[in-house]
Simulated scan of single mutants.
Amino acid sequence: MESVNQSVCVVDDDASIREALTSLLRAHGKSVLSFNSGKQFLESIQWDTVACLILDMRMPGMTGLEVQEHVINSSQVSIVFITGRNDVPSTVRAMKSGAVDFLAKPISEDALLRAVDMAIARTHSQRINAAADAALRALYETLTPREQELLPLLVGGLLNKQAADVLGITEYTVQVHRGHIMKKMQARSFATLVRQASRLELETCMPSNCHQH
């Protein structure tokens, strides 16, 4: 993990808490930025540099939950919430929206460090997966419309002859297309192609539910 993508952002309207958390995290080798409001954070941050967001639940202006809504739509940033009071509905909502942890003030240093490390690891994993998905989608986009039509038939288990019947083309043409698909998708084996189609969430066509043209 590159340190540039390991920045921890602390967002809390209480200056003493911001300073305490920032000092603690820096003492453990983290790159830390701090903000006194959700608005200040959202206006001044580059998403791809943030790995973990420590977010106060209750702040004047924009609440922690409102900031979380912006983050969910914009990037893969993992959030650790901190709160001064036990608010069960907000906790449930935050966790359902993907927060890594929810820590009550006064915050345990060990619990915070564990949560931050977990958040950074999750962000790193999400970004790797997102990059892999984007690369796979780019390969898929190099297929011709006919090849994109054929791929779900093949990975759904149809034989070349059956796929040819469905598309109204010759079996030989299916074989040619199949070779092109394997090459363009950089699939070393048919099993790899099946996994790729699954990851792309293509709607596959089984022999029982395919209709001939």
Results as ranks from 00 to 15, higher is better:
L25F: 01
D56E: 11
M95W: 12
A51F: 03
T192M: 12
N86V: 12
C52G: 08
M62T: 12
A20Q: 11
I45W: 03
N160R: 07
E203F: 03
E2N: 09
L150A: 06
S78R: 00
I120D: 04
A134N: 14
M95C: 05
H177F: 10
T63E: 08
S16K: 03
E66G: 07
L143N: 04
I72S: 03
D56L: 00
L65W: 04
H70P: 04
A197Q: 03
L42Q: 10
A187P: 13
L113P: 02
M206W: 13
D117C: 04
A99S: 09
A135W: 04
A135F: 11
A115Y: 01
K161H: 09
R93L: 13
A132D: 14
M118F: 02
K184W: 04
H213L: 03
R93W: 08
R114F: 11
V92R: 10
D48K: 11
H28S: 12
T170G: 11
P152D: 01
L25N: 00
N129Y: 14
R114Q: 07
P152N: 10
D13T: 09
H70Q: 15
D117K: 10
L113N: 07
A99N: 01
V77K: 00
A104D: 08
N73A: 15
E171Y: 09
Y140R: 03
C210I: 02
A163K: 00
M206T: 15
T144R: 10
M57S: 08
A99H: 00
A94H: 05
E69V: 08
C9Y: 11
D13G: 10
M1A: 09
V77C: 00
S75E: 11
K161R: 15
M185Q: 00
N86Y: 13
D87H: 07
N5E: 13
